[in-house]
């Protein structure tokens, strides 16, 4: 279970690379500092791309939760 309160959830399952990351970037841009954004992705590239981007962009990766056939990435907008 996700412990943080999710502000916005994006279902990017079925989107190929780099779709889920692009959706996350869009949501982060539209959001406010402190917002918690959740992205559901079935794309294997997201596993490396989303953490790499979060590190680069200076946000917080709250958690990655493996689900059946997809992963849930929970991100806090830090700046």
């Amino acid at each position: 279970m996700t412990t943080a309160n999710v502000t916005r959830s994006i279902d990017a399952r079925g989107m190929p690379c780099p779709g889920p990351l692009m959706s996350l970037i869009g949501a982060i841009r539209e959001g406010r500092v402190g917002d918690v954004i959740e992205v559901l992705s079935s794309d294997a590239g997201s596993r490396t791309d989303i953490p790499a981007w979060i590190q680069k962009a200076g946000h917080d990766l709250v958690e990655i939760v493996d689900e059946d056939g997809f992963a849930r990435f929970v991100v806090r907008k830090a700046r």
Partner: peptide
């Protein structure tokens, strides 16, 4: 397009 998007995402 994918290379472009990835590079743009990484600044």
């Amino acid at each position: 397009a994918v290379l472009t998007a990835g590079a743009a995402a990484m600044g």
